[in-house]
């Protein structure tokens, strides 16, 4: 990605490595790099998560607000994705420099969440046609070390898992007015169901091979990549082909198969990591290290 300059020889070296299923950091084609996950590190948000995938650093905060449902979907809540490419990641993102990338990521996330099967927006409804919850999922990209889509989706899923939505009771209507009563206890909250929330899997084509979790250098060698949104039970919710190159239909079908397998594995790994992190947070005095680690 940003600021990576590779010579022809270096690109060939990476290509040869991929061909013999031994990439330049020792991984095979379908291996991920090590990941770090931390939940609940922004106290001002209802839910937050930080994912560090090698050099890629993503911080996600989820905030809830009460809103009016859309007239065409009166019994559904809303979810909005906002991606902010911080200039901390690369000076190219200064000012409005990161907006193209930000729009691409946020649009893909909203298409994969709007399929209806991935996230139950009906659970966000408070009172049909009148009041619903709106989730603001704000993604902050702090460092880009390749494979942004996957890291972002992992962080989003983790942050949604961590989100506490306050419990609200609706009181009797008086002349069309609704009275919302919020519980006095700030810990009286409910959790979102993230079982079907997809993880994004990026398959990058280098030569004639598809690899997962490309580093910034590997992304530089590739012409095309395929992003799949895969759920826990292996369903593909949405798919998009990014960057300029092209795919042969045969590679594409093979990619779907590989992507699904990898996606199931990724979802499982995330689930385990979330459970572990949750256990740590429930301990007596969990240490909030955040960026201090």
């Amino acid at each position: 990605m940003a600021g990576v300059l590779l010579s022809e020889a270096e690109k060939t070296f990476i290509l040869h490595g991929v061909q013999s299923d031994l990439r330049n950091d020792g991984r095979s084609k379908q291996d991920y790099r090590p990941m770090e996950l931390e939940l609940d590190i922004v106290t001002h948000a209802n839910g937050s998560a930080r994912v560090r995938l090698a050099n890629t650093d993503i911080l996600v905060g989820v905030k809830t607000e009460i809103d009016v449902p859309k007239p065409e979907k009166p019994d559904e809540g809303k979810i909005e994705f906002f991606v902010d490419c911080s200039a901390n990641a690369t000076p190219e993102f200064e000012g409005k420099g990161g907006e193209d990338l930000a729009t691409e990521i946020s649009n893909f996330l909203s298409t994969s969440f709007n399929s209806g099967l991935s996230f139950d927006l009906k659970s966000l409804c408070i009172l049909k046609e009148i009041q619903c919850w709106k989730l603001y999922v704000d993604i902050l990209i702090l460092e880009c070390g390749g494979n942004l889509f996957d890291a972002v989706s992992l962080a989003v899923k983790a942050a949604l898992h961590n989100t506490m939505v306050p419990r609200v009771e609706t009181m009797a209507m008086d002349g069309g007015n609704v009275d919302l009563q919020l519980s006095g206890d700030p810990y009286d909250c409910w959790r979102l169901d993230i079982k079907n929330v997809p993880c994004l899997v990026t398959l990058t084509k280098i030569g004639e091979h598809l690899i997962v979790d490309p580093t910034a250098e590997e992304e530089n060698c590739s012409m095309a990549s395929l992003v799949l949104a895969v759920t826990e039970d292996g369903r593909i919710n949405s798919l998009s082909k990014t960057s300029v190159g092209s795919f042969h239909p045969h590679t594409l079908t093979e990619g779907l198969k590989v992507g699904t397998e990898v996606g199931i594995r990724l979802n499982k790994a995330l689930k385990e990591a979330l459970e572990k992190e949750e256990k740590r947070l429930q301990a007596d005095k969990p240490e909030r290290s955040g960026f201090l680690k």
Partner: peptide, 21 residues
């Protein structure tokens, strides 16, 4: 010397609309 100050949209109690600018 070039400085840019920006705030994460979730950094404040009330959600911010824009991180910078």
């Amino acid at each position: 010397v070039n400085c840019q100050y920006s705030m994460a949209v979730f950094s404040t109690g009330e959600r911010k609309r824009r991180p910078r600018g």
